[in-house]
Amino acid sequence: MKDYKILFTGSVCSGKTTAIRSLSDIETLDTDASASDVTVRRKKNTTIAMDYGVLELTSDARVHLYGTPGQERFRFMWEMLACEFAHDAIGMVLMVDNTRKDPFRDIRFYAKEFSDYLLKRRLIIAVTHSDVEPSPDYQEYLSALKNLGIMTTVMFIDARDPRAVLGIVEELISAVERNIDWDSVCDRLLDNNGFTLDFYKPLYEETLLDAAMNKRGVLGAMHLGDEQEILCSNIDDKPTKNLMRNIDRLTDAISDKAGFLGKVNNVVLAGPDVQTLSVFNDKSQSLCLCSDRDISLPVLKQQASDLLQWSIENDYLA
């Protein structure tokens, strides 16, 4: 029996668990738990350890499908999967949710996180949710990837559709395993796993503040509206609140008056013995965070971006 392995990774809600379910001939091993943070805005459960499934290709070839948890706080599992369970995988599939504020940022992030892993295997970028948000389109992905120096295959898929996800497996396996009847594999999957449309059901239950406080290193948070009004806050210190509102006001002014530079994305204040203060802007809202000074800026930015993207203000995603 020839055993191949494929590792699926990507941000929360990019469709990793769904893709593996669509493909697996066995009952998939899910390590889902009720989402206790911002993830709850997008789905009820989230993967906390890994997903696992098996796809039979022929009577003597099969593919083991591994999925990483999406949340950055479970990143220790990424390393465990890359170094142990899927260390000999034939390829990695990076699932990219097209509704994300900046899908290319996700690509940069995961390409960097798995840079060593990708030295020895193929990467396929599988773009999901393009039915909800068609932009960026295929051509934009190609040019962005070219600019990033990433030469890879991009596929737009619906993770619920076994036919689409099987196309990724075919892309990775067909070069090394030539005697597979892909059509019959596809028919079997459609018979067994079907094609359901119950994947994308956002549940808006939690405030942005609760979600922020669940992020690693976040000690306090304040949610501001477009006129710097406080929508909610658990920061008690008045001068700190004033400072953050002043900075938020400044960012609006700069975005207006220095439009040639683009929008102000964030402002971060730091010092050797103090908590880091940061203001993150998104459309007509801002998220202000007090955080542990040991949290790196890139991690802080990624967390804030996730939080703002899935906040109540962005319920157009529903």
């Binding site: 001068p239 700190t240 004033n242 400072l243 002043n246 960012t251 700069i254 975005s255 220095a258 530079l261 683009g262 929008k263 102000v264 994305n265 964030n266 402002v267 971060v268 204040l269 730091a270 010092g271 050797p272 013995d273 103090v274 203060l277 800026l297 930015k301």
Partner: peptide, 14 residues
């Protein structure tokens, strides 16, 4: 005016 101990500021624009 509002805080002490901050000697570093970063602003990301575009």
């Amino acid at each position: 005016k509002n805080a002490k101990g901050y000697d570093e500021a970063h602003m990301e624009i575009g």
